[in-house]
Design a protein around this nucleic acid. Sequence first.
DNA 1: CACAGTCTGTGCGGTATCGTACATAACTTA
DNA 2: TAAGTTATGTACGATACCGCACAGACTGTG
Lengths: 252, 252
Amino acid sequence: MFTTPSQTINRNHLLTALQVDELERLRPHLELVQMPLGSVLYESGDRLQHAWFPTTAIVSLQYIMENGASTEIAGVGNEGVLGISLFMGSTTTSSRAIVQTGGCGYRIKAGAMLQEFNRAESLQRLSLLYIQALITQMTLTAACYRHHSIEQQLCRWLLLTADWLTSNELTMTQELIASMLGVRREGITEAAGNLKDAGFINYRRGHITVLDRSGLETLSCECYQVVKKEYDSLLSTYASTRHSHSQAYRKK
Amino acid sequence: MFTTPSQTINRNHLLTALQVDELERLRPHLELVQMPLGSVLYESGDRLQHAWFPTTAIVSLQYIMENGASTEIAGVGNEGVLGISLFMGSTTTSSRAIVQTGGCGYRIKAGAMLQEFNRAESLQRLSLLYIQALITQMTLTAACYRHHSIEQQLCRWLLLTADWLTSNELTMTQELIASMLGVRREGITEAAGNLKDAGFINYRRGHITVLDRSGLETLSCECYQVVKKEYDSLLSTYASTRHSHSQAYRKK
DNA sequence: CACAGTCTGTGCGGTATCGTACATAACTTA
DNA sequence: TAAGTTATGTACGATACCGCACAGACTGTG
């Protein structure tokens, strides 16, 4: 969605958009960590110890109902940050953050994050900007759950995920997708079968390949385009506020 | 939900929780306005000219799909503020804000709001705290749309609305409720009929009376309790950070 | 008071999704 | 290679909700 694959490695767009001096202050606190598939960054109710800036990982924000049913509320890739409630002033969060696609990211301790945020400089400004986009994504997710078919939602989900990955090869079981969309696994099997018959995707046990993005877009609801547009706009705002020397970070 | 009716008049909890000096700075910019039923504070894509702090009004945040179908994403009462994207740094919003229950509120021009927010004092802190609670509400709304029946959602909606009103008398047509929950009007008619048969509510053309809150809670999904708890917690945090002299505002 | 407009009640067939059960296929490990 | 595990395919009745149509009831207005 955002950049070409090669640029994405070890790179989080929010971080790279920071002012140079601010990034230099943060750098000693940023720890490059593995974010393996399925690992839980935080649970509903947890007191956050860190914030995370994904680079190649994709994280799913989910709400878990009392009966254990899950619902994905939003996804976070290398355009964003996890643990926003840290600086929103709340001690806990209502959702679970679980790694949907394994990869890497930067981790920072809660205290350091909060301190920098409260300086009210670019980290704050960019984080708030990001949260606005996140809210848009959540809005569309809710509307999509209400009004669109499983097949449409699957198309939206595949497109968004492929955008985050900047790849057409997803490592993902139908069971997992179903749990994120909050539907039965069989529903995904059927929808995926249709998409395969249409020639828009291909898949084998645990792997999905997007063959025809525009095909998926025609079957998808408007939700994908709206969210994509919001994130594109976010990234271009990042870019326009990026200090000319911020590439110092990339060299690291 | 939050206080007794008499205390609610002309009062917004976020405003009253501000530091005294900050409130004094804001006061000249706060304009008490009518917020009549059905009026649209902003549309999706609008550039915001104001922020609003409801006192007796309730505002519904909705996403409007391309085909005109609507979905309520969250509600805002006298615990919150409308127009958050103003200070999130985005120029526009993705949702529509429409007055669901007529009443009053304070309005403030975008510039004044932004200026005070950027002082990074209590208005910023409280607004972010509020947004965190709003995000929780949006999360639960999405999960509820996915997993719960119309009847459960109606119970949730009635309880939340009654809490905002601090009253058991809602002026509301089934058609309007249906459009907010994004379902058919007939679905609401049927669910409301069940609740009436159970003795939990009563209604006549355009009016609904909640007779048995705990009854509704038993039929409601967990979503109501979770949201209520979040807002209760928000208000108690407001209260604990309120300056002892803030009642100066109430005297106005 | 009559009438128009709006709100609510009801019925009925259609459809998407669910819940369940079980079969088959693809990987993994011994 | 065999066994075990996990992923995917398929089927079928149940059900919640939809779309539509229309009737009846309430309310405000001339």
